Amino acid sequence: MYKMKTSMFPSGTYRVFSSRAVRALTKLTARQLQYWDETGFLRPSISTRKGRGTLRLYSFRDLVALKVAAELRGTLPLQTLRRLVAYFQKLDYTSPLAQVHFWVGRGKVYFREAGVTREAHRPEQSLIEGTVQIREVLADLSRQIDRLDARTPGRIERRRGVMSGKPVIAGTRIPTASIWRQVKEGLDADDVRKGYPGLTRKDIDAAVAFEKRTRASRRTA
């Protein structure tokens, strides 16, 4: 899944996010995401979990809605929060608004964006009102996504749902076994990196060292 980074687009707008990434970006728990999915409060729009081996996959709109819900839960009635979530899942974040103001009155939620009130005219009397600073939310998410993407070279990891749990170079989907096979065939680190431009020499060395240890332990077991 590709990502565009320009002054116009928030970082991550075109990405798909796993529940693991969403938890890191919103501070919501796995149980909270599962509950919201199963109750229909906020379901991932890309893919919901359907048994073992499947993942919840969220769009950027989902991520923004989750971020807003995480910050406002506990301060708004559940029904109001549900309507806010549905609203933020539909916004266009490639040309984001600066802010969205909302009111709750007559059993409805009203939104004002760029001077236009959605749903109906602003109620004469509102029980609850608030403002969501969209650009601040997007800027915060963009910074967090960039930090999440920052990869430490030379680490090996196993991630659920990635390459069937096989050891991979951290932050990638490249199995250590693939690097090992190429090195065994006579390729040096520079040759291997031509096939994987995002890797560093430290990544190659770590993958080879990991495979050597793993294979040695199998022989002695």
Rank of each mutant, 00 (worst) to 15 (best):
E119I: 13
I169F: 06
R112W: 10
R122M: 07
G53D: 07
S217L: 12
L33K: 01
K166W: 01
K166Y: 00
M163S: 12
L199S: 09
K27R: 14
E157P: 03
M1P: 04
S47V: 11
R31W: 01
R193P: 11
Y196S: 06
G198W: 02
T220C: 06
I134Q: 08
G154F: 01
V132F: 02
Q34T: 13
T94N: 06
K212H: 03
D37M: 10
S178R: 08
V16T: 15
S142A: 07
Q99G: 08
V116F: 10
F210H: 13
T152N: 10
L199R: 04
V109D: 00
R82T: 08
G171M: 08
D146T: 01
G171W: 05
R61D: 15
T117V: 15
T131K: 12
V183P: 00
M8F: 13
W180T: 03
Q34R: 13
T220G: 08
G12Q: 02
G195Y: 10
A189T: 01
D191E: 11
F210R: 02
R118N: 06
M1W: 03
M1R: 04
Y196R: 04
R155Q: 14
R83Q: 12
L81V: 04
K166G: 00
S95T: 13
V104F: 09
P153D: 00
Y14N: 14
E38M: 04
R20H: 11
I145T: 05
V192L: 10
V85W: 03
T39H: 02
D140V: 02
R193L: 07
P197C: 01
V208L: 05
I179C: 07
R49P: 05
T131N: 10
V132D: 01
Y87E: 15
E185H: 09
A221W: 05
Q89G: 13
M8T: 14
F88R: 02
K67P: 02
R106D: 15
D146W: 00
R112Q: 15
T131E: 14
F210T: 02
K67Q: 06
T200L: 11
K27W: 11
S217G: 06
P96C: 05
V137A: 12
I169Y: 02
I156W: 01
E211A: 00
R193C: 06
P175V: 14
V116L: 12
P153S: 03
Q79F: 11
G107F: 14
L28W: 13
Q125S: 08
R215D: 06
I174M: 02
L84K: 07
S59M: 10
L138R: 11
I156F: 00
T94G: 12
S45G: 13
A70E: 05
L55K: 08
L42F: 10
A216D: 11
L42G: 07
R155Y: 04
L148K: 00
R215W: 08
R56V: 03
R49N: 04
R151H: 04
I169H: 02
F111H: 12
V85A: 09
F88E: 04
L187Q: 15
R56P: 01
R52L: 08
D62N: 13
R147Q: 03
Y58F: 15
D146V: 01
R155G: 05
R82E: 07
E129D: 11
